[in-house]
Computed example of a mutant assay.
Amino acid sequence: MAAIIYSLCALTAFACAFLITRSYMRSRLRLLLWSGLCFWGLFLNNFILMVDRVLLGPEIDLSTWRLVVSLVALLPLLFGLIWEEE
């Protein structure tokens, strides 16, 4: 059951990242760029979570890598929200 939940979370983040990036390509609004980059990172984070919990099992721990990826994923959105002028 956990594998299904992790997969659905990764697919949702992928769908959001794809749709936001596609919207950015059409409108060129920079906030969409930062949001899209954030969601691509969140997709990668969810994918690493799925690999960590489902495929590798308890003997290998990727929690540090997941935290680093989630931090890097949130930095573009934080940058865009603070320093972008519209």
Score class of each variant (00 low, 15 high):
M50S: 02
A73T: 00
L55Q: 01
Y6Q: 09
D52L: 02
S7P: 02
R28S: 04
W83Y: 14
G41W: 01
W40M: 03
L29S: 08
A13Y: 10
E85L: 10
R30V: 11
L42E: 05
R53W: 01
L31E: 12
S70D: 05
E86I: 14
A17D: 07
Y24N: 08
E85S: 12
L42A: 07
N46M: 06
L11G: 10
P58D: 03
V54C: 00
I5M: 11
V54E: 04
G80F: 02
S70M: 12
S23N: 12
S70W: 13
V54I: 11
M1Y: 15
C16A: 15
P58K: 10
W65F: 12
F14L: 15
F43K: 05
F79G: 04
S63H: 13
P76E: 03
V51M: 04
S35N: 02
C9H: 07
M50D: 02
V72Y: 04
L33T: 01
W65I: 09
S7G: 11
Y24L: 08
L62E: 05
L74F: 14
E85H: 15
F47Q: 00
A3F: 13
L56S: 03
C38H: 07
I20F: 14
G41K: 03
T21C: 14
L37M: 11
A73K: 07
A3S: 14
T21A: 15
S7M: 12
F39P: 04
L8R: 06
F39R: 07
L74R: 02
L62Q: 03
L29Q: 12
L81H: 07
A3V: 11
R26D: 13
L71D: 09
M1A: 13
A17I: 04
R28N: 08
D61L: 02
S35P: 00
R53V: 06
C9R: 13
E85I: 12
I5K: 13
L31M: 11
G36N: 04
L49E: 07
G57W: 06
E84P: 00
S27E: 14
V72K: 00
Y24R: 08
I20G: 11
P76A: 06
F47S: 07
A73F: 04
I82W: 12
I82L: 05
S27R: 15
I48W: 05
L37N: 06
L42R: 03
L42K: 04
Y6G: 01
L49Y: 09
F43E: 06
C16R: 08
V69F: 09
A13V: 09
L71M: 14
T64V: 09
L42N: 08
V51A: 09
L77C: 13
V68D: 01
A10L: 15
W83Q: 09
L81S: 13
L19A: 14
W65V: 09
